[in-house]
């Protein structure tokens, strides 16, 4: 059933937009739902620029791409099957301070948008057929209705394109938090042995 809905959605979408290649949303069986994955990772790093370069290099090899790149933030898109592995790999480039992951089921949304698109196209076809038998006044009115309908159609197509894109590529936002260096200070503890716990001392005495 779901396969049919998706197939009809895609067919209508393709027919309406003339996009060419069909979008490929993974669907192995009828029980599988269409989901959009997204995540936000707050990463503490010493060198944000280097960390960013490494992550961008990594996503290239996974068939993904960056959509926003700044010194402080990176938004990347990857195929959904690479999503969990990439989240783990990103953690290697710094300290993950915060991580939120989201899975949105868009099966119903796709079906609804597909239905709306189909009905609006049907109406448009009917309006076109009225042209032949209409007078000037009626023609103007039909044109007005058709213009409005085309605007609505484009809006639905946009929403559908967006939903399909969300399913085709998972979105990961990586925000970098810069870890300042040389900020270790000497604080005297009333407990003597605590004053001996220190990385410099450890390395020097090893």
């Amino acid at each position: 059933m779901l396969r049919r809905i998706l197939f009809s959605v895609f067919m209508v979408f393709l027919g309406a937009t003339q996009l060419g290649a069909a979008p490929t949303v993974k669907q192995e069986n009828e029980k599988e739902r269409v989901c959009a994955f997204s995540a936000r990772v707050l990463l503490k790093v010493v060198h944000p620029v280097e960390a960013r370069k490494k992550i961008v290099g990594l996503i290239d090899s996974l068939g993904g791409f960056p959509s926003v790149v700044t010194d402080q933030k990176l938004i990347i898109r990857v195929p959904p099957e690479k999503f969990p592995g990439l989240i783990r790999d990103i953690g290697q480039y710094g300290v993950v301070v915060e991580k939120t992951m989201q899975r949105e089921d868009i099966t119903e949304k796709l079906a609804q948008l597909g239905g709306r698109l189909r009905s609006k196209q049907d109406i448009l076809e009917k309006l076109r057929s009225f042209f032949d038998d209409s007078n000037v006044k009626a023609t103007l009115q039909i044109e007005k209705n058709m213009t409005q309908l085309v605007i609505e159609l484009e809006k639905v197509k946009g929403q559908l394109r967006l939903a399909i894109d969300k399913a085709r590529f998972a979105t990961i936002e990586v925000a970098f938090r810069f870890r300042r260096r040389d900020r270790i200070v000497y604080v005297n503890s009333p407990f003597q042995w605590l004053n001996s716990v220190d990385l410099d001392r450890f390395l020097a005495e090893f």
């Binding site: 503490k44 790093v45 010493v46 300290v95 300042r180 260096r181 042995w193 716990v197 990385l199």
Partner: peptide, 23 residues
């Protein structure tokens, strides 16, 4: 514990055991 050290982040791991009058 994490700390920036040189160009990298370093970990200093401290494990404590208490045995009577010594740590």
């Amino acid at each position: 514990f994490l700390l920036p050290y040189g160009a990298d982040d370093w970990i200093l791991q401290e494990t404590i055991f208490i045995e009577g009058d010594r740590i």
